[in-house]
Design a protein around this nucleic acid. Structure first.
Lengths: 106, 106
DNA sequence: TATATTTGCAACCAATCGGTTTCATAAAAG
DNA sequence: CTTTTATGAAACCGATTGGTTGCAAATATA
C-alpha cells in the first residue's frame, strides 16, 4: 500500500474532495452527491486521504464529518520549492528559448 | 492515457529524475545508472515526463539530453496555493487541536 | 422494539501502471 | 563497411488502481 501525499493528490476525484471539504467538513454521503460514482467509491478515496493524513474524520452520532488537514501539503510544497526559482525568475522563458534554439541547431 | 502533472509526480522514480536533471541535462543512459532498473524503464518514465512537458529532449548526435522545464510545475503550485493559508497561519495548529478535542467529546 | 439511515469493509473486476525482454534504427567508431 | 553504442517502441506480465455490488454494524427514528 503506497500511501504518500503525492500519490494521494494524483487522483482528480481526491483533489476535488480536498477542495470541497476545504471550506467546510462534509459526510461521505454529502460528498458522494457531487460525484458520478457510488458512496462506497467516495469512501475508499476518503480512506486513502485519511491514511496519509490529509483528512481527519470527525464522528457525530452515526454521521462522520471529514475535514481537511492541510499540514501534510507542506511536503508537496517543500518538494516543489526546490524548483521554484526555475519558473519564478524572469529569465526562465529566455532560458527555454535559448535551449530550444540550441537543440534545433544542425 | 492520463498525462497530467499530478499523476506524473506521483511516482518516486519520476520525482528523482526531475531532481537529477534539475542541475544539469542528462541522457537516458546516464540517468539509468542512478536507478535499480533497466534503461528502458527509465525511458518510459522520460516519455511520460516529456508528454506532460515537465521535461524536454535535447538531441545531440545519437545522444538525447533531457532537461527540466519547470513551467508546468506552476500548475501544482497554483492548486496548492488555495490551501496555503491553512498551514501557514499560526493558528492552524490550534485549529487542529480544537477540532480534535471536539471530535473526541462524548 | 422494529425500521430506516449512515457508514465501513470485503470480494470482485476491468483497466492502468511499472517493470521486463526483445527488436529495429540511427549515429559514432573501428 | 562492419561493429559498437544510444535510443525508442512493442509485446508481455504481475501488481495496483478505481470502480462496482453485497453485507454487517451502529445510530436515529417511528
Amino acid at each position: 500500500m503506497r500511501r504518500d501525499v503525492f500519490q494521494a493528490i494524483a487522483d482528480p476525484t481526491r483533489r476535488a474532495i480536498l477542495v470541497l471539504i476545504a471550506s467546510q467538513a462534509m459526510t461521505p454521503n454529502a460528498l458522494a452527491d457531487h460525484f458520478d460514482m457510488t458512496r462506497q467509491a467516495v469512501s475508499k478515496h476518503l480512506r486513502i486521504l485519511t491514511e496519509c493524513e490529509l483528512v481527519k474524520p470527525d464522528p457525530s452520532g452515526r454521521e462522520i464529518y471529514y475535514h481537511l488537514d492541510a499540514t501534510r501539503m507542506k511536503l508537496i510544497d517543500q518538494w516543489l520549492s526546490q524548483f521554484k526559482s526555475m519558473w519564478e525568475n524572469r529569465f526562465s522563458e529566455l532560458d527555454n528559448l535559448l535551449s530550444t534554439m540550441k537543440s534545433t541547431e544542425k
